[in-house]
């Protein structure tokens, strides 16, 4: 009975302060323009210029020159390929390890679940600078823990393997470290997803004589589909643009086997000071992301 009155009051109150209502957007708008939009537009503009810090007087508009140079560069092509391998490898294994660990922690036999959950999350919370340091140490040839352990359990020839410095192992090694660091996010999120599956579904299935495996396929997996989509899409983006992990572990080496687009961009910008060229790579990175996962991302994210 109050419906019409309320609507009236609401619209009245809303209409009365139209300007004020937009005022709420001012803080985010200002900050957004300052730290996101302006730098982004600046980068796009920069990417059409030849700007080199060592030749300050040679700034020149070159149109698509940087993009053409980039697409013709074997280093860039390799970086794109490495970025793809790194991203796909990381996300697949992160998901598998994350799902496995979530299932373990979700088991009804486990006590102190909250404690274990907190421990599992540790690699994700500790700064990458620390994580990469620990793993550089653990994976060192000769005296690294992993190498010594492998030698002790019957693989003496692995004692001297330079995991992060050998062209055959460097990419798997950085993926391994990245998976170790990132999978806890999957664990925690999937665990929350698992908790949302009504337990009577499992009971009903078990009464119908379904095996554990069948319940897993027909109840668990569909139950966590939504959560899985979100974390996978998010991690594809985060991994594709991640700079810290590879920079701190290998700086893109050996022989550029782990050179991904962000580290190549950084090298061009801050080792060789080719700012315009580096900016072109950044813009390219964003465009690739927008084309490939942009749709999935806007669909699955909380914005709907």
């Amino acid at each position: 009975m109050n419906k019409s009155r309320r609507t009236q009051a609401t619209s009245g109150s809303l209409a009365g302060s139209a300007l004020g209502r937009y005022g709420y957007l001012v803080p985010i708008f200002v900050l957004f323009i300052l730290v996101e939009l302006y730098p982004f537009v600046y980068s796009v503009v920069l990417s059409f210029w030849n700007k080199h810090l060592l030749h300050p007087n040679a700034d020149q508009f070159i149109g698509l020159g940087n993009y053409i140079k980039m697409l013709q560069s074997p280093h860039f092509i390799r970086a794109i390929r490495n970025s793809t391998v790194f991203t796909v490898g990381s996300v697949v294994f992160e998901y598998l390890v994350g799902l496995g660990s979530a299932l373990i922690l979700n088991s009804r036999h486990i006590k102190f679940r909250n404690l274990f959950r907190a421990i599992v999350l540790l690699p994700w919370v500790v700064p990458i600078a620390v994580n990469s340091l620990i793993w550089k140490f653990m994976l060192s040839p000769n005296f690294g823990f992993i190498n010594q352990l492998l030698a002790a359990i019957g693989f003496p020839h692995l004692l001297t393997v330079n995991w992060l410095g050998d062209i055959r192992y460097a990419m798997p090694a950085v993926i391994f470290v990245n998976v170790w660091r990132s999978f806890p996010f999957y664990t925690i999120t999937l665990l929350a997803g698992l908790a949302q599956i009504p337990s009577d579904l499992y009971e009903a299935a078990s009464i119908d004589g379904a095996s554990k495996w069948q319940s897993f396929i027909h109840i668990t997996l569909p139950g966590i589909r939504g959560v899985s989509q979100v974390i996978v899409v998010l991690h594809i983006i985060w991994t594709f643009v991640n700079f810290d992990v590879i920079y701190l572990l290998t700086k893109g080496g050996p022989l550029r086997m782990t050179e991904v687009v962000p580290t190549l961009l950084y090298r061009e910008a801050f080792d060789f000071f080719n700012m315009g060229y580096a900016a072109a790579m950044g813009v390219f990175l964003l465009v690739v992301l927008a084309i490939t996962v942009g749709r999935a991302y806007t669909k699955t994210s909380s914005f709907q």
């Binding site: 040839p141 000769n142 330079n162 050998d166 062209i167």
Partner: peptide
């Protein structure tokens, strides 16, 4: 010169010398 030294940085070299390999 063993193959495993490929890709060594100075730290690997100095540590290996220290360890005695």
């Amino acid at each position: 010169v063993p193959e495993y030294i490929r890709g060594w940085e100075y730290n690997d070299l100095d540590q290996a010398f220290e360890v005695g390999t």
